[in-house]
Amino acid sequence: MKSIYKVPNGKLLKVFLELNENKISELKLTGDFFAHPEEGIHAIEEELSGKELGGDKNQLTEEINKFIKKKEIEFFGVNAGAITEAIYLAKNGE
């Protein structure tokens, strides 16, 4: 599954997603955004692996926000809400 999401006032986010029984089995966040340190994006992909994609988008956004705060990851041109949107867009094949 794949999605392309233009972050409002930001960059383009392209998500590749595989689900197994509604749980994330593979996630790749690509695009022309920035993250500091860059390795933080790999860490987010790993952190979200195994997460169930229920109906609550806000919960996923909160989890991502909590994780980036803990790991001191700074986004530029992208944000947690946009990652959530792009993941659900891929999931729903919108």
């Binding site: 392209k14 966040l29 695009g31 022309d32």
Partner: peptide
């Protein structure tokens, strides 16, 4: 290409 882009894409 940028760090997060897919070369083949």
């Amino acid at each position: 290409i940028g760090y997060f882009q897919s070369l083949e894409e």
